[in-house]
């Protein structure tokens, strides 16, 4: 093919050829994955986080609930991480298939087209870093031993609010700002994405229906954005020490009541890089450099 353009079609059986051939199904899956599970998960996630406004205990309760899900890592990977990765990678491929021309065509929906791609890139970077920052991506010890000293993998599910607050404070205003931008980008991306998905799937067809849908999506976006912002505000208000005391108490009650299995890996105190002893229940935390 002698097609001197970046979009030059390649029929040579390569990955690009495969993508071209199954373009429709891939893009529809991309659209779908953005709504369910990724979008739906994001709503749950931001709402859970905003429960911190009710105090560390409420938040801790919510986290306990989530962590009662069996085979959590499998669930996480199947229903969250892999769909996000799929959505993100295909999304980048899609974004690269077009060329924004906002400079000459300053229409509202063209701005949204551009913003959808920009927020997509931001969300990609944000989510990747965010998961590394708090979750760590993987929980193999050799990996944690590598990333934790870099200030990553900081969240402790059984000390949810306190570990979160500590993690956010570690670099001054850098993390709060990072989360502010990231969360807002994700929220816009989802709200606008619902609107475009509605057109793509043919849910809202006429211009007036699209206008109504746009309004509904905006309201949804604002509400979800508020949930996100309130969580960030709540984190900044949280005093780690106070929160930790409450969390430790809650943990003890639950362990004592056989509601959860003791798991020091999920606690600040018990967490020790390189430790392979699940029964280890010592007081290393006192020496913990954090």
């Amino acid at each position: 093919m002698n097609v001197p353009t970046p979009s030059a079609p390649s029929q040579s059986g390569s990955l690009a050829g495969f993508l071209k051939k199954h373009d429709f199904i891939i893009r529809r899956l991309h659209s779908l994955s953005g709504l369910v599970p990724v979008g739906a998960y994001m709503c749950v996630h931001l709402l859970t986080n905003s429960s911190l406004n009710g105090g560390p205990a409420v938040f801790q309760n919510a986290v306990f609930a989530i962590h009662s899900i069996p085979f959590l890592p499998v669930v996480e990977w199947t229903f969250i991480f892999l769909p996000i990765l799929f959505h993100a990678i295909v999304g980048v491929w899609i974004a690269r298939s077009g060329q924004s021309n906002l400079r000459n065509y300053r229409f509202t929906s063209n701005k949204r087209y551009w913003a959808q791609r920009m927020t997509g890139y931001i969300a990609f970077a944000f989510i990747f870093t965010h998961v590394l920052h708090l979750h760590g991506w993987f929980h193999w010890d050799w990996w944690l031993g590598f990333v934790e000293p870099l200030g990553m993998a900081q969240f402790r599910p059984y000390n949810a609010a306190s570990s979160l607050a500590e993690a956010m404070k570690s670099l001054g205003f850098v993390w709060p700002l990072f989360y502010l931008v990231g969360v807002l980008a994700c929220v816009f991306h989802l709200a606008n994405g619902i609107w475009t998905a509605g057109i793509t799937w043919g849910v809202w067809v006429s211009p007036s229906a699209q206008k109504r849908a746009s309004l509904a999506c905006s309201v949804f976006g604002v509400l979800l954005g508020l949930a996100g912002l309130s969580s960030l505000a709540a984190v900044s208000r949280t005093d780690p020490a106070t929160a930790k005391a409450i969390e430790d108490q809650m943990y003890k009650v639950r362990v004592d009541g056989h509601m959860i299995q003791p798991n020091e890996h999920k606690r600040s105190d018990g967490h020790h890089t390189g430790s392979s002893d699940p029964t280890h229940n010592g007081t290393v935390s006192a020496n913990d450099p954090k």
Binding site: K20, K21, D23, F24, R27, R28, I94, S97, G98, N101, Y105, F107, S109, N110, R112, Y113, W114, Q116, T196, I199, T200
Partner: peptide, 19 residues
């Protein structure tokens, strides 16, 4: 429309209708 280069390539920028 659902094949290669079909409707899925639309990015909903909606410039088409505006111009």
């Amino acid at each position: 429309l659902t094949g290669t280069g079909g409707i899925q390539a639309c990015g909903n920028a909606q410039n088409c209708v505006a111009v």
